[in-house]
Design a binder for these strands. Structure first.
Length: 752
DNA sequence: GTTCTAGAAC
DNA sequence: GTTCTAGAAC
């Protein structure tokens, strides 16, 4: 009797209709849905609702009753699921499935023909415990006081599912609304319907501020505040970065950065690569791995090729943040890698953004621990598998999915061109390696045995090779501009990407819109509301970032261009700077020193070595005003600096007193824009530009969103009013770094 | 009920 | 950049 093993609830269709449904099933894909959740999270109810309302035949496999109505084993569940799949039914796996090990055999069920989904019922522990404690009729006999102990133990070991375990789709439910939405989604699924792949419903990790609230309730009393005051700044920084490493939904239950990062960093030490310690973790960085183009089978001169690689890499890395390039070669003794490393070091290319790596480009993640979203393929003009080198390896590793996806887009490729191909999710390269795109690129050929032979014409050859790398990196840039702006529907979870902030109502639309409204992305190219690039509005020229500035963001630009027309608004007009009070001062004294240059010097990212003198002038003018203000009120202290990513166009330096006593300081962004690394001290900017020809900008969104800490004692505060109340009276010294290098300017003889 | 935050609109 | 305001947090 089936009911003994499987809690089968058939579709509402009966007789003839059932036959029809069965026939349809043979065309559509069956789905295995693994429920993931502790007892009391509502897994059984979830299944019941789906089965009750669904047009698709479902079978619920419940470990609690699979042993003749009693608790059974995982193997019994696997067998039950397998036989249901053979009948063309979709399966709901109703067991806790709390860790990867528990899930892995289910993910293999039915092979690639069967879709594997996970639905995570990540409801508040309190709720699950209270449900379990109350119930008296639980199938698994887990009820009463025992439930609380078991649930707490399970939660300690909780391991949220990842796409890389082999799931096509993961839905995270963190409240009843989410659960209802997931039920509706699955219940509405007809036999032929499929659901989009990727992670859905992940929300922001537990807010840092919540933790602070709990903390403050216990310790925010005058007598105890000292201990917090003494907390070194580093601790707070570390705390934030660690919490950002949490998987979404972990609610502070995280322990360490992902295994992947460990693996990668360990690998860095083992491998022949110049990736420094402290390099950007792949958690947050889009990575393109590429082989040397044309130097293998196409016999292109190595020296010349290396020069071009370094030249093109330099161009690209100057344009982007938070993306990196990796030159990959199979051979440990690769001459090309060592040449490129040397040249890159000479050019002082940021080794966080570019490094070399020895390994198989098709197994960078699984064998090398290096997560790469995009890989480049040195292909042939027919865009076909074969040839023996990288091209054969990539087509082979990616399976037929890549070949057909490529064919859909182009039939051939000219030398110097590149073709971006999104990798279908059924490609093993996507599933195992986390590669979302392959960029085919064709370089110049110096091999008489191959097509398009250039007969040693290196003038033309170098031109084509340059073009090839430009096309490749532009292709990568296009991926960045769309992937960054849009949701991470496909690859959102593979490398545990940061910035998984998704809104409640319509996660993907909102995320996309937010990016449009927000700061420019790394290339300075915004994304239109439809998610497409609007090239008529955005462009990058000569490495300078550009973006569209709203009308409200133009005010400073107009003043800089025509200061004489704004005499009433400005304090001082000099040859190349204009000084004015900030219209909404965030402190007792807050003025702006505005660069009076034409040609679109809009922000710190646009600053180059040629602007060094201007930066020094701006600093000197700022100091002159500071001196004046200190004469008026010697109790003040000042910082001079820039916002990493300003809201207003035209390079401007803030000169701001550190009291932050202002009615205009209203929100977290205001505070953190002056009191986190987002604020770049002018002295540091000048030093960076004179040493490296450009300034560091820290434009991570989380900097503006980080917890609120006193700029003197670094104590944490739950909200702006509380912070303001605190800073109003805090007299402790500023963090020591501010006293170095004259970052903090105060009246001589006065220790602030 | 009041305070506060954060997203949308400008 | 600010203002407005819904709704979350208290």
């Amino acid at each position: 009797m089936e009911a003994m093993e499987l809690d089968r609830i058939s579709s509402p269709s009966k007789g003839k209709e059932e036959e029809e449904d069965k026939a349809k099933m043979e065309e559509g894909k069956a789905i295995v849905v693994l429920l993931v959740g502790v007892p009391g999270s509502g897994k059984s109810t979830f299944c019941d609702y789906i089965i009750r309302g669904s047009k698709r035949p479902w079978v619920r496999v419940c470990q609690d009753i699979i042993g003749n109505g009693k608790s059974g084993t995982k193997t019994q569940c696997l067998m039950g699921a397998s036989s249901a799949l053979k009948e063309g039914k979709s399966v709901l796996i109703d067991r806790c499935n709390m860790n990867k090990e528990q899930r892995e055999d289910f993910v293999k069920l039915g092979g690639p023909e069967v879709e594997k989904h996970a639905v995570v019922l990540d409801l508040p522990a309190k709720m699950c415990i209270s449900r379990s404690v109350k119930r008296t009729d639980h199938e698994g006999k887990l009820q009463g006081g025992k439930a609380a102990v078991v649930i707490n133990q399970m939660l300690q070991k909780k391991e949220l599912p990842k796409l890389r375990e082999g799931f096509n789709r993961i839905t995270f439910c963190q409240d009843e609304k989410d659960v209802q939405a997931a039920v509706d989604t699955y219940a509405a699924l007809g036999s032929l319907d499929t659901l989009p792949t990727g992670c859905f419903g992940q929300k922001k990790p537990a807010k840092i501020q919540l933790g602070i609230m709990k903390f403050l309730k216990k310790v925010d009393s005058p007598s105890q505040e000292g201990s917090e005051r003494n907390a070194p700044e580093n601790n707070s920084q570390n705390k934030v970065s660690r919490e950002k490493d949490c998987s979404p939904g972990e609610e502070g239950n995280c322990s360490a950065p992902s295994d992947h990062v460990h693996k990668e960093m360990k690998h860095c030490q083992d491998q022949e690569m110049d990736m420094p310690t402290g390099a950007i973790s792949s958690d947050s960085v889009y990575t393109l791995a590429f082989p040397s183009i044309s130097t293998a089978d196409f016999h292109f001169n190595l020296e010349k090729a290396c020069d071009i690689i370094v030249e093109k890499v330099e161009e690209f890395v100057n344009k982007v943040n938070n993306a990196r390039l990796v030159l990959v070669d199979l051979s440990h003794g690769s001459k090309i890698l060592s040449l490129v490393r040397t040249k890159a070091a000479q050019k002082k290319i940021d080794s966080k953004k570019f490094f070399t790596f020895v390994g198989d480009i098709t197994r960078l993640y699984t064998e090398g621990g290096l997560g790469c979203n995009v890989i480049a393929n040195a292909t042939n003009w027919r865009l076909k598998p074969g040839g023996g080198g990288v091209n054969a390896a990539i087509f082979n590793a990616a399976g037929p999915a890549l070949e057909s996806a490529t064919k859909e887009r182009a039939g051939s490729l000219a030398p110097g061109k590149a073709l971006v191909v999104p990798l279908p999710s059924n490609s093993p390269l996507f599933a195992k390696e986390g590669v979302t795109h392959v960029i085919h690129v064709l370089g110049p050929n110096m091999n008489p045995q191959r097509p398009n032979y250039l007969n040693n014409d290196y003038v033309k050859g170098c031109k084509v090779l340059r073009e090839a790398y430009s096309s490749l990196f532009e292709g990568f840039a296009t991926i960045l501009s769309t992937q960054r702006g849009q949701s991470k529907e496909r690859d959102g979870n593979f490398f545990n990407s940061q910035d998984q902030k998704i809104k409640r109502e319509s996660p993907y639309e909102c995320e996309r819109n937010k990016k449009v409204k927000g700061l420019p992305n790394e290339l300075g190219n915004d994304v239109s509301p439809s998610g497409e690039r609007t090239d008529n509005q955005h462009h990058a020229d000569n490495g300078r970032t550009t973006k569209v500035w709203g009308s409200w963001a133009q005010a400073l630009y107009h003043i800089a261009m025509h200061p004489e027309k704004h005499r009433k608004d400005v304090l001082e007009i000099l040859d190349d700077v204009v000084v004015l009070d900030d219209l909404y001062p965030k402190a007792q004294r807050h003025l702006l020193v505005l660069a009076q240059v034409e040609g679109g010097l809009d922000c710190l990212a646009d600053v180059r070595e040629q602007h060094l003198q201007l930066l020094k002038t701006m600093h000197a003018v700022g100091l002159k005003w500071v001196e004046k203000y200190l004469n008026e009120n010697e109790s003040l202290a000042f910082r001079l600096g820039y916002h990493s990513v300003p809201s207003m166009r035209q390079l401007h330096m803030h000169v701001i007193s550190q009291d932050f006593n202002s009615k205009h300081l209203k929100n977290k962004k205001h505070w953190n824009s002056f009191n986190s690394p987002f604020f770049r001290d002018s002295v540091d900017v000048i030093e960076e530009v004179s040493k490296h020809g450009k300034a560091t900008v820290k434009d991570e969104e989380n900097l503006l969103n980080m917890e609120l800490r006193c700029n003197r004692c670094r104590s944490a505060h739950p909200n702006i009013p509380r912070l303001k109340a605190h800073i109003n009276s805090c007299q402790l010294p500023f963090p020591s770094a501010l006293y170095e290098n004259q970052r903090l300017v105060f009246a001589s003889g006065k220790q602030r």
